[in-house]
Amino acid sequence: MPRVSIISVIRSEFLKLRTLRSTWLSFAITAALTIGFGALISYVTKMQFPKMSFIEKATFDPIAISLVGTLFAQFAVGVIGALMITSEFVSGSIRTTLAAVPSRMRILVAKAAVLKFSVLIVGLICAFAAFLLGQVIMSGPGIPTATLADANTLRAVLLAGLYLMLLSLLGFGLGLIIRQTAGTISAFVSILLVLPLITFLLPAAWRDAIAKFLPSSLGRSMMSAPGSITEIPLFSPWAATGILIGYVVLIIGIGAYLFEHRDV
């Protein structure tokens, strides 16, 4: 007799994700921000390059510049992740979902898998497009550009896609805990925008010790050439990736515990 399996629940959740307009809209915004902003900033940088100081030229990172759009797109993928779960709580359809699949962990694993897969694919496509377009725009006499043949460059572009995926999972985890769309998105924006602002009000020594742990700083490190000089110290790309994965596991872990034990 046919029964509920993880595969059948994943198929169900995938259908749910792709039959919503908000999903397509958010993915379109993700692409527009990653590729569009990357192209725009690349162009502006190219125009300014001749006027740059010696230090600015020495620290010039064509990889980070072409991928800067991901730091805007992170909000769009965070919304996709948050909505994946909060829309069910807000509408009450989580009850219909759980009346069809009583195992809450199965629902959670299926939703996270569908989200991960979708955002990773879209994120990678956008990151590669933004990188390649950015290099084409920036190429000109005297301006250094990067190529995917370089292992470090390839790493930065791949991690940009991974960064978007991890941020969507962060939004998902916050949604599991907070269960309301507005509250979840506020929390998400606070972590990414407000926390960095607060750290810049701190004394320099404190700031340098704390700021590198912020998700936005981890993202910068993941998407930069190694050893680039920045105004705050950053972790190495792989350490940053590990720490960000740790955050996501922690938040989703708390969310999973609450989801398993709370009434719906």
Binding site: S8, V9, L15, R21, S91, S93, T96, A100
Partner: peptide
């Protein structure tokens, strides 16, 4: 009224059917 307002009636049912292999 506990359903996602943006999804069509048919897709609401298809999502449920898929999960239970109906």
């Amino acid at each position: 009224k506990a359903l996602h307002p943006g999804r069509s009636a048919r897709n609401q049912l298809v999502a449920l059917a898929l999960s239970n292999q109906i």
